[in-house]
Amino acid sequence: MNWDPGGASQNTSKLYVLMRFLRIEQTLFSLPMAYLGAFVVLRKVPSISVLILIFSALFFLRIAGMTNDNLADREIDSRNPRTRTRPLVTGVITVRDAKLLIIVGLAGFFISAYLVNIWAFLLSPFVALIVMTYPYMKRFTAFANYHLASIQGIAVFSGAVAALGLVYNSLLTILYYVPWLFVISTVFWALGFDLYNHIPDAEFDKQMNLHSFAVMLGPKALKFAGLNQIGSVTLAFLADYLYNLGPIGFVSTILHGAIMAYAYYLASRGDFGRAFYYNIYSSIVLGLGVDIDIALGIPFT
């Protein structure tokens, strides 16, 4: 129950503390899914410039979003025994540092979006709004879990817009060709790993009048996470079929489901820390598998 993906000892280097504060590894975990959106809509490997700009936009938005999340929750985290080692709580990172990181992150995100294409830039304020409002939603509704999950789905959406905006001049056409099945599949997947972060805090959140499906559903929250992830795998298979993927795509979807099943098993035994990370690994497998499938173009025989 003491596991915390954002915690860091004060006896470690400032760089390490900053990486833990931003949970920078989750940017790398999201990247294959952002690339998935671009690969699927183009049916080929995007240009190097598009790949770099997708990474840049995701990286800077992660800085802004995660810093804002930590800043908004600073007082709550200071009262939760599980999160008391977070850098903003311990003072290793100051409020002034956090505000500067948010400015840098948003500036980098908007510049990256502008350099991608005009549609990515015009949509960027809406994406930023969704990301930056997440930490406040749990004050009002359990659907904050889906709010967080939608941010992961936006990675797929944004990758698609980055690629499609270079091909089509119509926003409606771009939105039509977004691989929505993969977007929604990603939302259902992310709901599961977010609940692995909330279930250990259910009693604390209830005392603080915070909302989540872990609080709303109590012991049934874990089953709810599992049902969402079954939905994720189902939609991913439908997407493989609809978007004419080859054997690597289908195998990666099977592995995606198997890893999530193992994560669920770990969570059912109370090992939420390992469950959280295994669940994230499942998205890497799916994203990379689809990306490689399209890059190699190996059809079913």
Rank of each mutant, 00 (worst) to 15 (best):
Y278S: 08
R274D: 08
Y278D: 10
Y265R: 14
I280A: 08
G257N: 07
Y281C: 02
R274W: 08
L255M: 04
F250W: 14
L266N: 13
G289K: 02
Y277W: 15
S252N: 03
A258C: 09
A275M: 09
F276M: 13
F272S: 15
A267F: 12
Y264M: 10
L288T: 00
F276V: 12
S252T: 09
G273T: 09
I254V: 11
R274C: 04
Y265E: 12
A267V: 14
I280M: 03
F272L: 13
G270S: 14
L286F: 02
Y264Q: 13
I280D: 07
R274P: 04
Y262I: 12
S283C: 00
I284W: 01
R269D: 13
Y281T: 04
G270D: 13
Y278N: 12
V290H: 00
F276D: 07
Y278F: 11
I254N: 03
A258S: 12
A258Q: 08
A263I: 06
G273L: 10
A258N: 07
H256I: 07
A267S: 15
S252G: 09
S282E: 01
G289S: 09
M260H: 10
Y262D: 12
Y277I: 13
A258E: 05
V285A: 08
I254G: 06
T253E: 04
G273V: 06
Y265A: 10
H256M: 12
S268W: 09
I254T: 06
Y264R: 05
S252L: 09
G289W: 01
Y281V: 03
G270F: 11
L266Y: 05
M260C: 11
S282C: 02
F276C: 10
F276S: 14
A275W: 08
S283M: 07
A261V: 10
H256C: 13
G257P: 02
Y265F: 10
L288P: 02
G289L: 02
S268C: 13
M260N: 15
A258M: 15
L266S: 09
T253A: 06
S252H: 11
I280L: 12
T253K: 04
R269L: 14
S282N: 02
G287Y: 01
F276L: 13
G270E: 15
M260P: 07
Y262C: 09
S282A: 10
G287Q: 04
G273W: 08
I284S: 03
Y277Q: 10
S268G: 15
A267R: 08
G273S: 07
Y278R: 13
R269A: 15
F272M: 12
I254Y: 03
D271L: 14
T253Y: 00
G257F: 06
G289M: 02
R269N: 12
F276A: 11
G273I: 06
G289D: 07
V251F: 13
Y264C: 05
A258L: 12
G289C: 05
R269H: 15
R274N: 11
I254S: 07
A263L: 08
Y265Q: 10
A263C: 10
V251Q: 05
